[in-house]
Design a protein around this nucleic acid. Structure first.
Length: 769
RNA sequence: GGGCGAGUGGCGGAAUGGUAUACGCAGGGGACUUAAAAUCCCCGGGGGGAAACUCCGUGCGGGUUCGACUCCCGCCUCGCCCACCA
């Protein structure tokens, strides 16, 4: 017998919608639980089968918390700015706004069909002007605090997307999104000074409950090194070269120095005789892509500048080289090379025949004294490139005025009462290879008046990266319809921090770090009540195709959730996706596995439909251990074994009828996993109201202990017999029973018992010789 | 090169010091049926044996322990992340 999932799923989804059971409450004495999933990017491809993995898992937990009496906030929204939509708009000649609306409609319909207990009344959309008004407002807070600045810098330019990328968006030397070739380009960019928060982003990891691998990855990304800055006077010149080193104690072994090709002192270092060769090297290096640089990792390149520096520790004269293995963005962009102690320096020294000297080490303090150096720290973290030269993003709310604000380069904030600066309609969205935003072609939008002097001014045409809107969306969920502020202080105090945030590992050094930073900044400005936004962070594994590879359109191995829901039902999909494997591990999709879960759900439906109270017996001893395990497994994210415990429960029943109360308990615990079926069964046994309105069951300890257990008897660690005993049986009883076993006696014949190890309820091991 | 994780039946996986392979899939056998589907019951790591039982077995090699998939040391393979960060 197979139940009609299409009928019952629609029915209960309507009931949930009209009853508002999933709405977070505004005023209540209940403890709060804020449960967050990473809001999706509504792509044209529709929901990916991987999305429900995270959503269903946290749905189970949210539902359990509601049963447990918590006021639960489990919201959903759309991270809808970004390139795929813009590129699709260009290709089809349509407006990104229209495409986004269609895509979010599809995603909303698909998510609702899964029976997820989101509070749909709080839906947010980063592309909604009422939302991005506050993204712009927050940007201005960064600007006013001096943390947003515009600077000319070599950026990563994706030649395919025609867009500047942050370092974080360049993966293996190619564009993270499209795989396109990256080249370096000099461009004026808005930057946000995340590096000012490097130390706190690092330190405060100790105050939050994240999976350890997430902390490790963030620490590594922030990359703190302690060391010293030491000045090396240039021979015959006024200037000195400042280096950063983590090994000041090796300073006697310095045999040469190296500066990055982009170092500001390069021009002064070049001597006439070397000018030709050095300039050619710098030019060649600038042309190199990240990939090309990577390939030459083993083979280092560089040139001698012609200049010398003086080692402040011993007065030795040492040559200064230029090489691209030294990075301008880290430390001071200059190093003292100690081939004896550093592999890279050694490789370079070998390559160019520079001396390698084995000199004694000296203490940190002594070095600082001799060289007048100072202790310092360096971070790998770089400031955040915040400009994008594209259309489909939040306009940066600044105008440029020739007269006003010379201290900020002529940049003036758009006043709060003129926010949001709304994206204007444009004819064409194509990016230009000149690196200007498509907004740059709309004169009537660009030309405006300066809010300070009233004179003519021009709007900034760069837009924000799509990490902007996602850096604070968890705050907007708390008060999504507020027109006065992004969220009221009282509501923020009630809900923050997020109690549990689940998302993909790929966001660890991007979104997760950005949003921690963003929240800390708002905290410092007094706008949010907590310094860390997420009390706990968990992460899920990918759903792979059946062959264990990533699902991709080009390989044609993408599973469509609509089809699964139509054929097998949302409850089957939910339960299978939890059952398929450990939550944190990548797991291949299997239609057969899904069918197995559907059979189980049919079995439950069949059981309930033939269940009758007249034949009921007390099956508490069978049922409760399983329900207890399921309840515990939810807490430890072991959803796969929770589902198998359900299967065992119904196998163990052997079709025996449990009591009405016991059946109710089973259905309440089933609710978070298969909510439609649980409600349908709930109604079939004559219950009114919704399963969602019931309290989570408690478990009777006396029913959790078995009266007797089967125990192995081992001889020298090998199982030779089994005996049945009370779990707390006395050792003497256990020994007597074990020694009476025929197979045990066989082994004991002619042997001496050295000792007997007895672990009640577990094992009895007889050691013989 | 560095960091993190994983390696268990035909397959997804369970067990984190105590009878390895729970649960599910695929497979074999049986019941029901004119038949099939569906459903239900039974079997199910490999070798030997009629059976009782026995030997081998959790990537490889050592070790700790009464007892190791589990802990320790040394390798191999795969996955993910970072990768010239001084």
């Amino acid at each position: 017998m197979s139940y009609n999932h299409q009928e019952i799923e629609k029915k209960w989804q309507n009931r949930w919608e009209t009853s508002s059971v999933f709405h977070a409450q505004e005023s209540t004495d209940k403890p709060k639980f804020y449960c967050l999933i990473e809001f999706p990017y509504p792509s044209g491809a529709g929901l990916h089968i991987g999305h429900p993995r995270s959503y269903t898992a946290l749905d189970v937990l949210s539902r359990k918390r509601r049963h447990q009496g918590y006021n639960v906030l489990y919201p959903i929204g759309w991270d809808a700015f970004g390139l795929p939509t813009e590129n699709y708009a260009i290709k089809t000649g349509r407006k990104p706004q229209d495409i986004t609306r269609e895509n979010t409609d599809t995603f909303r319909r698909q998510l609702k069909s899964l029976g997820l207990s989101f509070d749909w009344s709080r839906e947010v959309n980063t592309t909604d002007p009422a939302y991005y008004k506050w993204t712009q407002w927050m940007f201005l807070e960064f600007f006013k605090a001096g943390l947003a600045y515009k600077t000319k810098m070599a950026i990563n330019w994706c030649t395919s997307c025609k867009i500047g990328l942050a370092n974080e968006e360049v993966v293996n030397g190619v564009c993270e999104r499209c795989g396109g070739r990256i080249e370096k380009r000099d461009k004026e960019q808005w930057m946000i000074a995340i590096t000012k928060y490097a130390e706190r982003l690092l330190q405060d990891l100790d105050t939050v409950d994240y999976l350890e691998k997430i902390k490790v990855q963030q620490r590594h990304w922030i990359g703190k090194s302690e060391g010293a800055e030491i000045d090396f006077l240039l021979d015959g010149k006024q200037e000195s070269l400042k280096v950063f080193t983590t090994r000041p104690d090796t300073i006697f072994g310095v045999t040469y120095m190296v500066v990055a090709p982009e170092h500001p002192l390069v021009e002064k270092l070049i001597t006439d005789s070397q000018r030709c060769v050095v300039e050619r090297y710098i030019h060649e290096t600038a042309q190199k892509t990240e990939i090309e640089r990577g390939k030459q990792e083993k083979e280092k390149t560089g040139v001698f500048t012609g200049s010398y520096a003086i080692n402040p520790a011993n007065g030795e004269k040492i040559p200064v080289w230029i090489a691209d293995y030294v990075l301008m963005g880290y430390g001071t962009g200059a190093v003292m090379a100690v081939p004896q102690h550093d592999d890279r320096d050694r490789a370079f020294a070998v390559q160019y025949g520079l001396p390698i000297l084995d000199r004694p080490l000296i203490s940190f303090d002594e070095v600082l004294e001799r060289t007048k150096g100072k202790k310092t720290v360096a971070y790998k973290l770089r400031d955040w490139v915040f400009s994008r030269q594209r259309y489909w993003g939040e306009p940066i709310p600044l105008v440029h005025c020739e007269i006003c604000s010379p201290q900020t380069g002529g940049w003036v904030s758009v006043p709060e009462n003129q926010l949001p600066v709304v994206l204007p309609d444009v004819e064409k969205y194509e990016p230009t290879d000149t690196g200007e935003s498509p907004l740059a072609t709309i004169d009537e939008w660009i030309n405006t008046i300066c809010p300070e002097c009233g004179g003519p001014a021009k709007r900034e045409t760069d837009t924000m990266p799509n990490w902007a809107g996602s850096s604070w969306y968890f705050l907007r969920y708390i008060d999504p319809h507020n027109n006065e502020t992004f969220a009221s202080v009282e509501k923020l105090k009630h809900w923050m921090p997020v109690d549990l945030y689940n998302g993909g590992m790929e966001h660890t050094t991007l979104h997760l770090l950005y949003s921690r930073f963003w929240n800390k900044f708002l905290f410092d400005q007094g706008h949010v009540p907590v310094s860390e936004p997420y009390a706990r962070r968990h992460s899920h594994g990918l759903v792979l195709a059946a062959d264990g590879t990533k699902m991709s359109k080009s390989k044609g191995n993408v599973v469509n959730p609509d089809e699964i829901v139509r054929e097998y039902g949302a409850d089957s999909l939910r339960m299978y996706i939890l059952f398929m494997g450990p939550f944190e591990e990548p797991v291949p999709w299997s239609l057969n596995g899904l069918i197995g879960v559907r059979r189980f759900l049919d079995k439950v439906m069949k059981y309930v439909s033939v269940w009758n109270q007249a034949q009921a017996q007390d099956l508490g001893k069978v049922i409760e251990p399983h329900l207890k395990k399921i309840s515990d497994d939810i807490e430890s994210f072991k959803f796969n074994t929770a589902v198998s415990a359900f299967m065992r429960l119904f196998n163990d029943l052997n079709a025996a009828m449990m009591t009405h109360d016991q059946l109710k308990k089973c259905l309440i615990v089933l609710g978070p996993f298969a909510p439609h079926l649980a409600n349908e069964c709930w109604e079939m046994i004559g219950e009114t109201r919704l399963v969602e309105e019931q309290s989570w069951p408690t478990f009777d300890d006396s029913l959790l202990v078995q009266s007797c257990v089967e125990m192995a008897v081992q001889i020298n660690g090998k199982a030779r017999a089994t005996i049945t005993l009370a779990p707390d049986a006395h050792e003497q009883t256990a020994r007597t029973t074990a020694l009476a076993q025929a197979n045990i006696q066989k082994y004991l014949e002619g042997k001496e018992i050295v000792k007997i190890v007895y672990v009640p309820g577990r094992i009895l091991n007889i050691v013989i010789k």
